[in-house]
Design a binder for these strands. Structure first.
Lengths: 169, 169
DNA sequence: AGCTGATTGTCATGTTAGGTGACAATCACC
DNA sequence: GGTGATTGTCACCTAACATGACAATCAGCT
């Protein structure tokens, strides 16, 4: 069934969407990490900075929940970004055990550069197909992500915690 | 540009193909690993068995090259599959330092079950979209994999070694 | 035949990201 | 005011990957 693949004869795995997604996903993540390395941050740092750029002052627990990682891991991410002077831990106005994480001025400049890197990465990844196919591909991938219950901006690399986050806003 | 995404407003990452591929790829790999666990093998074992099912008697080095992994890693994979009685190391007829890896009778039965698992995994992953979109998606993913120079049946998880293997046969 | 360099399989080791459990400080509730 | 839950932090463990070294064997050359 569905033997419409033009390169299936080589490997039986190369015609499976699940394998292709795994292969391309690992490549995309690895490549993005390499492109981001000169800026001194990793993809998880970029995700955290992106989250913060759309809402400062959240606690580490809230950030960890939003990114689908454990709060213990968030400690390390915040530590590293704080050492690089990109964020700072202020005292939370409403909860004295929590920290309010805020972006520094340097972070905004770096975020612009990182987003340019992400744009270049996206462009090169999609360089093989036309403009119409790109939007169609993104739509299909979003349908798959929606149907499998994957939360919205959650980092790849871990895939449990399909908890309270239902679909995208 | 290209703001055709219906769920883009939530997260700026959720509209990027690179992020979606990373997210879905990690989910697909992780989920496949969970589905394969009851059979006592991991996805890398499945890939090795699939390779062997299309050609017995190869040396570990050849298998490692074909799967895009280092020969040191192949030692562990062969060890584990040999302990489970799925493959056996025979003496290579033409090279006395190499081993000729052969599938056992038990491996063929397990491979059929594993392929059924892979079919189920594929079906559930693609359950959200229609039949036409599935083949279109696979075609698009194959184009991306071809253009980025990813070799054919190579496991995800590592993404260098875009060496001699050009395109798919 | 003998010698030199490359190759194969193996082992030991280090590195990295991710997960778990325990802890003090603080909150929320009754 | 007291009890359980929550937050941030720490120390430890695990899994996957890469690296370097080694003996055994091959391939090519003289």
């Amino acid at each position: 069934m569905a033997d419409v693949t033009p390169r299936a004869p080589g490997h039986p795995l190369a015609g499976r969407a699940s394998f292709l997604l795994s292969q391309l996903g690992a490549y995309s993540a690895h490549e993005f990490g390499k492109r981001l390395a000169p800026l001194g941050i990793r993809p998880s740092h970029f995700g955290l900075l992106m989250h913060l750029s759309r809402g400062d002052g959240q606690s580490q627990q809230r950030l960890a929940d939003a990114m689908g990682i454990h709060r213990n891991v968030m400690v390390g991410l915040v530590d590293e970004l704080e050492d690089r002077g990109l964020i700072e831990r202020r005292s939370h106005p409403a909860d004295r055990r929590a920290h309010a994480i805020h972006l520094t001025a340097a972070a905004h400049g770096l975020l612009r550069r990182a987003q340019r890197v992400a744009d270049e990465h996206e462009a090169e990844l999609l360089a093989g197909i036309g403009e119409d196919d790109r939007s169609h591909l993104i739509t299909l991938l979003q349908h798959l992500a929606d149907h499998t219950g994957l939360p919205c901006g959650v980092h790849p690399g871990r895939a449990n915690s399909v908890s309270t986050l239902g679909s995208c806003p």
